[in-house]
């Protein structure tokens, strides 16, 4: 059980895909212009990642090592297309905002990274814990980036005006703003991480 908790929290903090591993940041930079996009994209990725990890873990003894990458890609692409179709059918407003980024989950390196680096070697339970941790780690990271960009760029938080006219820095909504916000947040996370490492050394 402690192993499962460790696998789960690993993605939330220690190996957070966005802030610590800095992987899969293409979508993180592109969709994070409003808070709700961050949440939706995070949940979509968590779903694809968890389903793919389950299948890859179950099939790990069947898939021949030489064709493992094509197999993983087929599994990932199938789940991504399902999310794409169901989102289009049942959440059209959300699909309008981030439609083009959903198919791109196929090539999101986080999914392949966890399939290849973890699920293909670990038990089902551990793979699920790891996928959920990584997915939610990605989700909270990009939601945080989205919130910062939305507040600074359009002065709103989840569509509700919180800053009045004080912040309308359009640059925050453009690609440079994504890099600025992410860079600063990664810096802050590194500072926190360094402090907590120092503390453990003191013991």
């Amino acid at each position: 059980m402690t192993q499962l908790i460790k696998d789960f929290t690993n993605g939330l903090w220690n190996e957070n895909p966005i802030f610590r591993a800095v992987i899969g940041i293409c979508s993180a930079l592109a969709v994070t212009t409003a808070g709700q996009n961050g949440i939706a994209m995070g949940l979509a990725l968590t779903f694809v990642l968890t389903c793919s990890s389950i299948l890859v873990s179950l099939l790990r003894s069947i898939i021949p090592p030489k064709v493992r990458i094509p197999c993983y890609i087929i599994v990932i692409a199938t789940f991504t297309t399902m999310v794409d179709l169901f989102m289009k059918a049942y959440f059209p407003p959300l699909y309008q905002v981030m439609g083009i980024f959903i198919p791109l989950i196929v090539v999101n390196c986080i999914v392949l990274w966890r399939a290849e680096g973890f699920a293909s070697k670990a038990s089902l339970a551990r793979s699920i814990a790891d996928a959920l941790g990584m997915g939610l780690g990605y989700a909270w990271a990009i939601t945080l980036i989205s919130i910062v960009r939305e507040v600074l760029g359009s002065g709103t938080l989840f569509g509700i005006n919180v800053m009045g006219q004080a912040t309308h820095w359009v640059i925050m909504l453009l690609p440079p703003g994504a890099f600025l916000v992410m860079g600063i947040l990664v810096g802050i996370m590194n500072m926190i991480a360094r402090k907590s490492v120092k503390n453990t050394h003191c013991h």
Binding site: I63, C71, V75, T78, M82
Partner: peptide, 19 residues
């Protein structure tokens, strides 16, 4: 290798067709 890839592709295709 061929059998596994074909089976996985077929299942994926069927799931997608259904969705």
């Amino acid at each position: 290798m061929i059998v596994v890839l074909v089976i996985i592709s077929l299942v994926a295709g069927a799931v997608l067709a259904f969705s």
